[in-house]
Design a protein around this nucleic acid. Structure first.
Lengths: 157, 157
DNA sequence: TTGATCGGAGATCATTATAGTCTCCGACTC
DNA sequence: GAGTCGGAGACTATAATGATCTCCGATCAA
């Protein structure tokens, strides 16, 4: 449950790869093309291409056309969060259908819904979690996210 | 993204309802039947029935057959966590395919996978989150989870 | 003891989301 | 201007989900 899609997986792998080639920084050095990533990680080329295009549209990477073309990080790995990557591919985080309900598509349960508020809080917590972890963290050098635990840290209010 | 299923939604609503009828405790008083919940929250009766049966199998509620039959909490709302409920319905938490990979079904990316470890940590964090919140918390009385956050957003309620 | 009311369980179907493919286009470098 | 790259759309297959239908067994009360 709560699975992220393959596309999102691929996005993370690709970005991770690009970032490691650039040492996490925005270097003008080598660009990475789709084929290279697809082969290294055994990802279907055309699917990965779509993913990278989406990431480029969302401003996480920069594309360069033509021979010797490919992709570069648009900004430092430290400034790219997991939340941004996942949302770029899968759209806004929403653990429940009513998270981003538009006008007029009220869910049937809404009227008597007894779980909306607490679920939105869970969602918020997950979002914070994903926002507090960056691509740089995934590169392995820096400490990863920590979480509160009722046994470890006091759960305030 | 990271959406939980309708079934899980229904399970949460139903349990929340049963718990509130019993004031969060295991009281021998009134049992709640499927129809009552289905009508109150506009949930398809037969789908809800399946969900409740699953919850019963997982030991979260107790079923009573016959007229005047229905369901009761199997234990106090304080002892039922959101993680238990969701896992009971949707199976073990796994944000990525390789979270619970069985022998012989290694994913193609595994060999060079650069994101498995960090993702498992994210998953672990989410799990902690869901394990630290109980049905009792959802009843509204007691404090909900809080998370660490760089922007220090207090979670009230 | 019989019938109405409840849960238990299986098969089935429709809809949607996902994963993956194919084709053609335009930009760029050499 | 030929070959290599990304850009973009339509398209298909498969799986997951949500929902329905049917029949069964347990239980209680008249």
């Amino acid at each position: 449950m709560l699975k992220i899609s393959k596309k999102a997986d691929y996005a993370l792998m690709a970005l991770q790869h690009i970032a490691s080639v650039q040492f996490g920084d925005v270097t003008p050095g080598r660009v990475v093309n789709t084929k290279e990533i697809a082969e290294e990680y055994h990802i279907p080329l055309e699917l990965l291409a779509k993913v990278l295009q989406t990431l480029a549209k969302n401003g996480l990477i920069e594309s360069h056309n033509g021979p010797k073309g490919g992709y570069l990080l648009a900004r430092s790995a430290r400034q790219i969060t997991i939340a941004q990557i996942l949302e770029g591919i899968e759209g806004p985080l929403g653990i429940t259908d009513c998270s981003h309900e538009k006008e007029g598509e009220l869910c049937l349960q809404r009227e008597h819904c007894n779980i909306r508020t607490p679920l939105l809080k869970v969602q918020d917590s997950i979002y914070q979690l994903l926002s507090n972890m960056t691509l740089q963290d995934m590169l392995g050098g820096t400490p990863l996210i920590t979480i509160q635990s009722s046994t470890a840290q006091g759960v305030a209010q």
